[in-house]
Amino acid sequence: MLRIITEDPLPPEGKFREAIWQQLQQLYGELGVSRVGFWVMSYNPELFFSIVRCQHNQVRELRAALATITSINHTPILLQVVGMSGTIRKAKTLLPRQEK
């Protein structure tokens, strides 16, 4: 689960997904991206959060790629991993508690 920290309005989901995808591709290549198994499961620009999915043994690779992202669509941005879960359902239940 990612928290998106920025001073500007959030970019659309497509740009967000593309930015992470490109960063993964730059770092690990197409073969690496397929191994990571990255996908955006949920993107909420109002709450400034997103849930992304990856293979359980590729978490470090994804975290490293997320840490190298400095801007999306010319918007300075900071992606902070605030939680991890084995299931999407559990990840979704984590968020409201943290936001309260």
Partner: peptide, 18 residues
């Protein structure tokens, strides 16, 4: 050099993997 270039401690540890 900018506030949004800061990274959380765990994210820096992940970055160190590179």
């Amino acid at each position: 050099t900018a506030p949004l270039e800061l990274r959380a401690p765990r994210d820096l540890v992940a970055l160190a993997f590179l």
